[in-house]
Computed example of a mutant assay.
Amino acid sequence: MKIGNSPSPEGPAGPAKTEQRPAARKPEAAVANEIVRPTANAPAASAQVALSSAAQLAASAGPDDGSFDAAKVDRISKAISEGKFTINANAIADKLVANAQELLNSRANKH
């Protein structure tokens, strides 16, 4: 898996960049609290979903588990809007490889 820019048909530099920012997303809490009502043309449910006990425990922890840092989200959001947010692709790749290795090791130990 390669992390980074893919080549574009317009050449190595790609198309001219324009100042466009993606539309603002709703906070996850707002999305989670929205009620989704089926429409008259909605297809019938085609899958059954069952949560494991670990997933149920994680879901029941809710927003009061201390894992949400609003100040950090605000700092990152501000950095993104100012164009100052940078991504360290090497660190992401290193962590992906480490997580994959950990997963492979845990599976090897079970067999």
Rank of each mutant, 00 (worst) to 15 (best):
A32T: 07
N109E: 06
Q101I: 06
R25P: 03
A93C: 02
A40M: 02
K84G: 07
P63K: 06
K17C: 13
S6K: 11
E10L: 12
A59R: 10
R25N: 11
F68V: 14
Q20K: 14
E102V: 01
A24R: 12
G11Y: 10
F68C: 08
E28S: 09
G83H: 01
R75G: 03
L96T: 00
G62T: 07
A13T: 15
I80Y: 14
M1T: 05
D64G: 10
L51G: 01
A108V: 03
Q48I: 06
G83A: 01
D65I: 07
R107Q: 12
A30K: 12
I3D: 05
K72L: 12
E102M: 03
N109R: 08
A50R: 14
P63V: 07
A79H: 04
I76M: 10
A91Q: 14
S81F: 00
N88H: 06
N33I: 02
A45T: 03
G66P: 03
P9Q: 10
S106L: 08
N88V: 02
E102K: 06
A59G: 05
N41M: 02
A23S: 14
A71W: 03
K2P: 00
T39D: 06
T86S: 14
P63A: 12
A13N: 15
V31L: 12
N88M: 01
R21G: 04
M1Q: 06
P7Q: 09
I87W: 04
I3K: 05
G14N: 10
S106I: 06
E10G: 03
A55P: 01
S8A: 10
A93T: 02
A44L: 04
K95N: 00
K84Y: 08
I92F: 02
K95D: 01
A59P: 00
I35V: 14
D69W: 07
H111D: 15
V73N: 02
A54N: 15
L57F: 12
E19G: 12
V36F: 09
K110N: 03
N5S: 10
A29K: 12
E34K: 10
G11Q: 12
D65H: 08
G14P: 04
K110M: 05
G4E: 06
V31H: 07
N90A: 08
S46A: 14
R107V: 02
A23N: 12
K17A: 15
P15A: 13
A54S: 15
Q56L: 13
A108N: 05
K72P: 00
A24N: 10
R37W: 03
R25D: 11
P63R: 08
E28P: 03
K17N: 12
A24Y: 07
N88T: 03
A89H: 08
K84D: 13
A29G: 07
P27S: 13
G83P: 00
D65W: 07
T86F: 09
A54G: 08
R37P: 00
K84T: 13
I3Q: 04
N5M: 10
K26D: 15
S67I: 05
I76D: 07
L103A: 05
L103N: 01
K26M: 15
A13R: 15
A30E: 15
S6V: 09
P22D: 12
K72I: 05
K26Y: 08
E82L: 13
V73H: 05
T18W: 09
R37C: 01
